[in-house]
Design a protein around this nucleic acid. Structure first.
Length: 494
DNA sequence: AGAGTTTTGTA
DNA sequence: ACAAAACTC
């Protein structure tokens, strides 16, 4: 438990919270700190569609983010915190725009929660420098992870590169510390002093209303407010967390079966910040006797998964090359990756002729999400059986996932491609047919997403005979596996 | 959070 | 004859 908070000190007349992927009122460190230390508080969100596109963030993740922001705007307004929405093309233009904003709004202090990919860090460094030079107080908070990246180091002062020792050190460091969520910000006395909008130079309009879509992003919520079936917002995120709590006891046993819906499905909310990591840990601890282990098998297992997210976020902060399309192990760039556009397209569309792969890719395309077991299966298939550059797969996932997160996605892809730290050994190649029989025994999941195969028996569905209307496999799984192993083995120092 | 083959252990 | 363990890639 933390120490009792000192009485809030309202040092600043006007503060600004810069919202990014932390779109919630509750347990938002920067928002809480801002409300605590300022008499008046506003929030700003800066959409950077070109930079987002350049780093492969696709329509699903962007649309979901904006829909969560729209919900948050209402909740902020109820607390007399106006939200200013600004769209500018690129991160590089953010510092200039931010200088103007804080000047026009007479801001004395800026609060934001840290982001850790390289481009975001550089953007934030530039903003910090610009605003400090202008005499402002700038506070970047640790919020996205349980501990700030860099807080857990090996005995030799190194970043952990292997998950298991990282986890051991992390748990030892935290013991059964309770990562208590923060309360929502207090209601500010008034919002009357804030302008409704500001005109900036270079035709940047700051407005209080949020567009449903940005140029280039066509995805809009359906009649019920859902995006690809996902309800955006902090309330929906909290509902998901509560619903998962009901079944977390079965998580360890059932999570690997994609037909079962036994996973938390919280990733879209965690990624844009509609749910916080501390809220997740608080729930899991409550189900697990108040600590990391020893209580509920399912809760314990899920806490381990949350630590994978923690691990990959610490890694993305420590190694800029992970944000730059480079493998963690440089030698793996000498793997003779293929760049076959037609094969790649069959993988993207879910027409490889390997049912479990096709079902998984269609789940991604149709719902913006894919079960984690299947993420491993399709990534192994692309990078080992097809020997296509893992970066093509990584990019496609970023473009299609509603939970697209550079740290977790890059970590997962480099794990599957054997290019990462603590990745799967190159000779350990998934057989998609074995995986299919093991984890979708009755073909239930395949039938859900590959209607052409619905009529097949559970015997035939994993590896169907030649059929009208369904492609033959694009590769021989056994042969391509051997070729991939040979290609990796041909390199030294792996 | 591998898969395939061979060896060993038990009847 | 079969399963579990032990190798290999």
């Amino acid at each position: 438990m933390g120490n009792p908070e000192p009485k809030p000190l309202k040092r600043f007349r006007r503060g600004l919270v810069w919202l990014r992927n932390d779109l919630r009122l509750n347990d938002n460190t920067a928002l809480y700190r801002g409300a605590q230390s300022c008499r008046e508080l506003a929030a700003v969100f800066i959409a950077c569609p070109i930079s987002w596109q350049e780093q492969d963030e696709g329509e699903p993740v962007v649309a979901f983010r904006l829909a969560c922001l729209r919900e948050l705007q209402q909740r902020l307004a109820e607390r007399n915190i106006p939200l200013y929405f600004l769209e500018i093309a690129r991160f590089q233009q953010v510092p200039r725009a931010m200088e103007e904003i804080v000047h026009k709004l007479e801001i004395e202090a800026l609060f934001a929660n840290s982001e850790y990919p390289y481009n975001e860090q550089r953007r934030d460094d530039a903003v910090r420098t610009a605003l400090k030079n202008a005499g402002l107080q700038v506070e970047f908070c640790s919020d996205r992870t349980l501990l700030p990246p860099g807080a857990v180091k090996t005995g030799g002062g190194e970043t952990y590169k292997v998950f298991t020792p990282f986890k051991r050190a992390f748990v030892a460091r935290c013991g059964s510390d309770y990562f208590a969520p923060l309360p929502p910000p207090r209601k500010m006395e008034t919002a009357a002093g804030w302008p409704r909008w500001i005109q900036l130079a270079e035709q940047h309009n700051l407005v209080r209303t949020i567009p449903g879509k940005l140029p280039g992003y066509e995805l809009t919520p359906d009649r019920n407010g859902r995006l690809l079936g996902w309800m955006p917002g902090e309330k929906a995120g909290a509902r998901h967390l509560r619903a998962f709590r009901e079944k977390i006891g079965r998580y360890a046993l059932e999570r690997d079966f994609p037909a079962k819906d036994a996973t938390s499905r919280l990733s879209p909310y965690l990624n844009c910040g509609a749910v916080s990591i501390r809220q997740c840990v608080q729930m899991a601890f409550a189900e697990n006797g108040g600590g990391w282990s020893g209580g509920n098998q399912g809760a314990e297992c899920w806490l381990g998964e949350l630590l994978w997210r923690e691990f990959y976020t610490h890694l993305i902060a420590a190694f800029p090359r992970l944000s730059m399309h480079k493998p963690f192990k440089p030698d793996t760039d000498r793997v003779p990756w293929k760049y076959d556009a037609q094969l790649f397209r069959s993988w993207c569309e879910g027409t490889t002729g390997v049912p479990i792969v096709d079902a998984a890719m269609r789940q991604l395309n149709e719902t913006g999400w894919m079960h984690n077991r299947l993420r491993m299966v399709v990534a192994s298939f692309l990078t080992k059986n097809l020997l296509i550059d893992w970066r093509w797969g990584e990019r496609y996932f970023m473009q299609r996932l509603i939970d697209a997160d550079l740290a977790a996605n890059n970590g997962g892809w480099q794990w599957a491609a054997s290019t990462g730290t603590d990745s799967v050994p190159y000779f350990r190649v998934f057989n998609p047919y074995s995986q299919s029989k093991r984890f979708d025994r009755h073909g239930e999941f395949i039938r859900r997403f590959v209607p052409e195969l619905r009529h097949l028996s559970e015997k035939a569905i994993h590896c169907p005979p030649p059929l009208d209307g369904y492609p033959a496999p694009v590769c021989d799984v056994a042969q391509s596996r051997d070729q991939a192993i040979a290609a990796f083995a041909g390199l030294r120092n792996l």
